[in-house]
Nucleic acid binder design. Structure first.
Length: 191
DNA sequence: ACGATGATGAAC
DNA sequence: TTCATCATCGTA
């Protein structure tokens, strides 16, 4: 059971897509090499009003693909050195995307792109085999109890939007630990 | 705790 | 054209 996810999967409410991306497989094929891993951590960036989203200030050259068709890669550079990979969700004209923050064995969005050799030339490309980067459903089903919803990382400037639990983590991903202070989980940490 | 490193967007 | 900021990471 191996099915390449297409536009119909991504052209739905962003939070649903984000949650359902856990357990799916990111596949990269370039120069005869294939890299595959199960997605274990994602974040949703949803609409014009989401202050943490690049789309909040309106359409620009960088974020234009977020306003376009679902099922397209949105790849950009942050902090001068890390590429981030997102997949566009929702209908055309509605800016939204899901950031892939971690896969099994590779936690951290900058590490994911490095591991999969993903960089800006993929920005704006459709997620399909022909473009060398796509998402597969391989039949893994993740139970709601295995998912933790947390605030997004690195968006403290976004006020109330920073507190929304738009980050989805697959708990059984072995490397994910939760630090606790006063008994409350605060953030994921990487080991 | 901090510096690396460069693109982006808003101000001037 | 300048400037602050930034969906981070490795080293300390």
């Amino acid at each position: 059971m191996k099915k390449v996810l297409t536009k119909d999967f991504f052209e739905r409410p962003t939070l649903s897509v984000a949650r359902e991306m856990l357990g799916k497989y990111l596949v990269r094929r370039v120069r005869g090499r294939e890299v595959v891993a199960m997605i274990t951590e994602v974040e949703a960036y949803d609409g014009f009003r989401d202050k943490a989203s690049h789309a909040h200030r309106g359409e620009t050259r960088r974020n234009a693909v977020m306003f376009g068709n679902a099922g397209v890669w949105y790849v950009y550079l942050v902090y001068g050195m890390h590429e981030m990979v997102n997949i566009v969700t929702g209908g055309k004209g509605y800016p939204a995307a899901v950031l892939i923050r971690g896969v099994e064995g590779v936690l951290g969005p900058g590490r994911v792109t490095k591991h999969f050799h993903i960089s800006r030339p993929l920005d704006g490309k459709v997620a399909e085999e022909q473009n060398g980067l796509w998402v597969e459903d391989r039949g893994v089903r993740i139970h709601a109890k295995e998912i933790r919803r947390l605030p997004r990382v690195g968006v403290a400037y976004a006020g109330a939007w920073a507190e929304k639990k738009y980050r989805f983590v697959y708990l059984s991903s072995k490397r994910f630990k939760t630090k606790r202070t006063g008994g409350r989980p605060v953030r994921g940490s990487y080991h």
